[in-house]
C-alpha cells in the first residue's frame, strides 16, 4: 500500500523540479538574483582565502586611502582603506560570511520553530490554536526592530544574540503561514483518505500535509533571509549587533559614520554590499513565488 502511494511520487519529483526551473528561468531578474546570490555564497565560504589582505590588519601608513581610480588611491588597496588603515575590499569580502551566516541561522531557527508551532496550531483543538495565535499576535504587536533591539539589550550585544532576537521576531510569520496552509489543506480529500487509511497524527502532520504547505513557506524563507540580513545590519549599525573589529557590513557602516563627509568610500561600499545582496535575494524570492505558487503570481 505504502509502496503504491510513494512510488509515483518519487517519479513525479524530477518532473516537478524541472517544471519549477522552467518557470523560474522565465523570470530574468530571478536568474540574475540567483547568480549574485551564488557569488555571495562563494565569498561567504572562501572569503578569507580570496581577500587580498587580512581583514583586521591595520596599515597605519595608509589610513583613509581613496579607491584606486581617485587621486591618492593605489592598486594595493583597490577600494581604499578605512580610518584605521584596513583594506575595504578585504573587509567587504570577509564580511559576506557574517551576513550569510545570519541569514542561514535566522531562517533555520525561525522556520523550524514556526513550522512546528504552526502545524501544532493547525492540528490541535480550537482552544490550543487560539492560545498559540494570540501569543503570535502579541509578538507581532511590537515593531520587529524595536523588539529585537530590546531583546539584544537583555541578552547583551553580540552577533549571536542579534540572530536569536531576529529569529524570535520573524517566527510568528511562519506560524501564521503554516497554520493557514494547514487549515486549507486539511479540508482536502487526500488528507481524509490518508486518515481513513489509518495514518497517525504525526504521519498526517509531517508526511501528508506538510509537504503540500511548503511552497509559500519556501518563499517566506527567501524573503526573511533578506529581512534577517537587513535587521542584523541595522542592529550592527546601532551598536547592538556584531562588535568591532568584526567586518560585519552594518557594524562597518557604524564605524564609518563620522567620516561620512570626508571619505565617501568607507560609507558607500558596505551599504552597497548590503543593498546588492538583499536585492538579489528579493529578486530570487519573487521568482520563487512566481514559480512555486501560481495563486500568488503577480505579473
Amino acid at each position: 500500500m505504502t509502496d503504491a502511494i510513494s512510488s509515483p511520487q518519487t517519479e513525479a519529483r524530477p518532473g516537478r523540479l524541472r517544471e519549477f526551473w522552467f518557470y523560474f528561468r522565465e523570470n530574468r531578474g530571478a536568474v540574475i538574483g540567483l547568480w549574485i546570490f551564488a557569488a555571495f555564497a562563494f565569498l561567504a565560504l572562501f572569503g578569507p582565502w580570496i581577500a587580498p589582505h587580512d581583514a583586521t590588519t591595520q596599515y597605519r601608513d595608509a589610513t583613509l586611502q581613496p579607491p584606486f581610480w581617485q587621486e591618492g588611491g593605489s592598486w594595493e588597496y583597490i577600494l581604499g582603506t578605512d580610518p584605521l588603515g584596513r583594506d575595504m575590499l578585504s573587509r567587504l569580502i570577509v564580511g559576506a560570511r557574517f551576513s550569510f551566516f545570519v541569514g542561514i541561522v535566522v531562517v533555520s531557527i525561525a522556520a523550524t520553530g514556526g513550522i512546528i508551532v504552526g502545524l501544532i496550531a493547525g492540528f490541535s483543538p480550537k482552544w490550543v490554536d487560539t492560545i498559540i495565535m494570540r501569543i503570535m499576535d502579541i509578538v507581532l504587536a511590537f515593531p520587529s526592530l524595536l523588539l529585537a533591539l530590546v531583546l539584544v539589550a537583555i541578552l547583551g550585544p553580540s552577533l549571536t544574540n542579534a540572530m536569536i532576537a531576529i529569529a524570535i521576531v520573524l517566527q510568528p510569520h511562519y506560524v501564521r503561514l503554516t497554520r493557514a496552509s494547514v487549515l486549507s489543506e486539511k479540508q482536502k480529500d487526500y488528507v481524509t483518505s490518508a486518515k481513513v487509511a489509518g495514518a497517525g497524527l504525526w504521519r498526517l502532520m509531517f508526511v501528508t500535509v506538510l509537504p503540500n504547505c511548503l511552497a509559500p513557506i519556501i518563499v517566506q524563507a527567501a524573503l526573511s533571509f533578506s529581512t534577517a540580513i537587513l535587521d542584523a545590519a541595522a542592529l550592527g549599525f546601532l551598536g547592538m549587533g556584531a562588535q568591532p573589529p568584526t567586518p560585519e557590513w552594518g557594524t562597518m557602516l557604524a564605524e564609518a559614520r563620522e567620516f561620512i563627509l570626508r571619505a565617501w568610500w568607507v560609507v558607500t561600499f558596505p551599504g552597497l554590499a548590503i543593498l546588492v545582496t538583499v536585492l538579489a535575494i528579493n529578486l530570487m524570492g519573487d521568482g520563487l513565488r512566481d514559480a512555486l505558487d501560481p495563486k500568488l503570481k503577480r505579473s
Binding site: A233, G250, L253, R257, I260, T268, G271
Partner: peptide
C-alpha cells in the same frame, strides 16, 4: 520599487546626507 524595498535605510540616509 524592488530596490527601494531592499534598501538598508540607515545607509540610504547616510548617502542622502553625503
Amino acid at each position: 520599487a524592488l530596490v527601494g524595498y531592499s534598501m538598508p535605510i540607515f545607509w540610504w540616509a547616510l548617502l542622502l546626507i553625503i
